[in-house]
Nucleic acid binder design. Structure first.
Lengths: 245, 245
DNA sequence: CAGTGGTCTAGACCACTGA
DNA sequence: CAGTGGTCTAGACCACTGC
């Protein structure tokens, strides 16, 4: 197994990160075959001129991603199956863009309102607090995909309609210095009523996927509550789970 | 912040794990308030008689769980929001049991069959390979919740119907020595046809959640492919996501 | 038995934050 | 500036695996 592994000590990139990236790309390119053993940590450290803890840190990050499996007494193996990304906190805009679907957005509404009981509870603010409401229609290839209603604390961002039409909400939040940390989601289904059907170019009674999501920043503050409708004929949630050890 | 932290060096439980458990329970009991600083790692190590890397390992595991946030130059803080469990690879049986719903199962069918193209592709076996097909109806409080069709390689387990009625499939797999590792899922929606409606005690045209899942063990072998239908009026998927740093 | 990963130590220097 | 987490080293011993 003659992988060309090497680290650059002059680089500001941490050594363990350089190594984990090289291993990850070797796995992705198939240079490290599924099921193959990685070779023991001590040798690897010696060959690279690194200490064992540093090598372990690199390997551990790939184990956490699900690309490698360690077995005591055996060694470290490349997982057989192609693990794709675990479910990420991504916006529909990013998802569509990544799929090459050239998303478009129509901003239907953008107002500052007083929080209803539902929104206040989700954002953990007093009822009646001013919140920004953004209502959008997401299109792909000119076809409606989803209707999205988002509520945000009014002091976070004040996006222009043009910004909302050319980028995702999460990108705007990150640009405003918000560090997204976690989200709580509920995915369900229901059938379209007449108004929803017309908005999404479906028939009344068509199946819709519903998703409610509250997103928190790293201080634990709720920064967004979304309540969305997706056309089930055009969209499904697709994701990977890792079993926590 | 006078937490009674201590480690038992005689215990076979790793020191970092003892510490992370004590910190986690302190956070859950509210003894470590959200937003409070944890105190620096060097002091903590000194007070416990541990080395700094060991303390860091304990803290890191809680950061990975989303309970703590580190900020360079600032310190380590308890996250404000109550983070619940991230989405787990759990069976509906376990989910219902955890919710106190006393699940029940009707085994509708249990056969060894030849894999269809769909199943063969999902399990990565040749078409026509013998696979175990299990078809079940999951009930809670006597009401149908979901219709579940699972396909498994025929050589893994041969469960008795009684076992299938009193436990989840994943528990049976774990009991057979299978280490579950990851799963790929797709969640969608559609409306019930006449047969599905009757089976699930819904009306024709009622909304259903669909879920297809392929589960892999730690060698990357596909050990289960499931194709399930949930009554949207009774069930939704509820989960937490962490943003990968 | 030899070889593997799992855990742990006691230091070191750096980068970033806030006062 | 002092204090924090981020990274890194060079060892050590243990637990588990397979031969």
């Amino acid at each position: 197994m003659d992988l060309q592994l090497s680290v650059d000590r002059g680089s500001p990139v941490p050594l363990y990160f350089q190594l984990s990236q090289q291993l990850e790309s070797a796995i992705e390119r198939g240079r490290l075959a599924p099921g193959s053993l990685l070779g023991n940590e001590i040798d690897l450290a010696g060959r690279l001129g690194l200490s064992r803890p540093t090598v372990r840190q690199a390997i551990q990050s790939l184990v956490d991603k699900g690309l490698l499996v360690r077995r005591r007494g055996i060694g470290t193996q490349v997982v057989h199956s192609q693990v794709k990304r675990p479910m990420e906190l991504s916006s529909l805009y990013d998802d569509l863009e990544a799929a090459g679907q050239r998303p478009a957005t129509q901003v239907l509404r953008q107002d500052v309102e007083e929080a209803t009981a539902e929104v206040a509870a989700a954002l953990a603010v007093p009822e009646g607090t001013e919140v920004l409401l953004v209502e959008r229609l997401r299109l792909a290839h000119g076809e409606p995909m989803a209707h999205m209603r988002n509520h945000l604390p009014a002091d976070l961002i004040s996006p222009k309609a043009a910004e909302l039409e050319t980028t995702g909400l999460y990108r705007l939040l990150r640009g405003a210095g918000v560090t997204l940390h976690s989200a709580r989601q509920t995915v369900g289904a229901r059938v379209a009523d007449a108004a929803e059907a017309q908005l999404l170019a479906e028939d009344e009674g068509a199946p819709l996927l519903t998703m409610q999501r509250t997103t928190y920043d790293d201080t634990g503050r709720a920064v967004e509550y979304g309540s969305h409708l997706y056309r089930a004929s055009r969209y499904s949630f697709d994701f990977q789970l890792l079993v926590r050890p």
